[in-house]
């Protein structure tokens, strides 16, 4: 085994500046989880297949398991930094309201990807949501509720309560959203059913 060379890294994570000593060959995922104890970022496949380790670097959703920590350029946002103190990010609120989880392992990566999308495009079409989340694998939910949740977070300029109440009252179908292909399935928000 070759000797490790440890370097002092300065990382801006969730608005906080951290100085952390880490070996040069460690990934951002390893540093976040092992050094900063930000274990919300999940280590799944560890080779770029599953998206569980997704974080925002400079506002872009990237895979922390394939990013060398010493190569990070820009502020990092992890799932711990998504909401404020005692408040939820609209994406988290929407995932909660829609029940867009089962085991929860993929959820941090899913929500970070969704936040990256909504920051760049606050009113995405359902195809744009599908595309933005296509690098995040979920083996439990079947994705339907996850799509609902991102639609919900986007629907009323992040006023999730308003969106949720409207949708429950009106049983709004996904087909009411723009750019859903004709004949696209009817998806009842809040119940996760498609007809």
């Amino acid at each position: 085994m070759r000797p490790k060379k440890t370097v002092l890294l300065t990382l801006l994570v969730n608005g906080q500046r951290h100085e952390v000593a880490a070996p040069q060959h460690h990934t951002l995922c390893e540093v976040l989880r092992d050094k900063l104890r930000l274990t919300g970022t999940k280590q799944g496949c560890d080779k770029g297949d599953c998206g569980a380790c997704t974080v925002l670097v400079g506002g872009q959703a990237v895979l922390s398991c394939l990013t060398l920590a010493c190569a990070v350029d820009g502020p990092v946002t992890t799932i711990e930094g998504l909401g404020g103190r005692g408040t939820l990010d609209p994406v988290q609120d929407a995932f909660d309201k829609c029940g867009a989880l089962q085991c929860g392992f993929c959820q941090p990566g899913m929500m970070i990807s969704a936040r990256g999308l909504l920051d760049e495009n606050p009113t995405p079409t359902i195809d744009e949501i599908r595309n933005a989340l296509s690098g995040n694998l979920c083996r439990c939910t079947g994705y339907t509720k996850i799509l609902e949740a991102v639609l919900l977070a986007a629907a009323h300029g992040n006023d999730v309560d308003q969106s949720y109440n409207d949708m429950r009252r009106d049983r709004v179908a996904v087909s009411a959203f723009p750019d859903v292909p004709p004949g696209g399935g009817l998806l009842i928000i809040g119940q996760g059913k498609s007809q």
Binding site: M1, R2, V7, Q24, H25, D46, K47
Partner: peptide
């Protein structure tokens, strides 16, 4: 976790 063997990093 798939660990990498140590290496030095240069950042030109």
């Amino acid at each position: 976790m798939l660990r990498m063997d140590p290496f030095l990093t240069e950042t030109p």
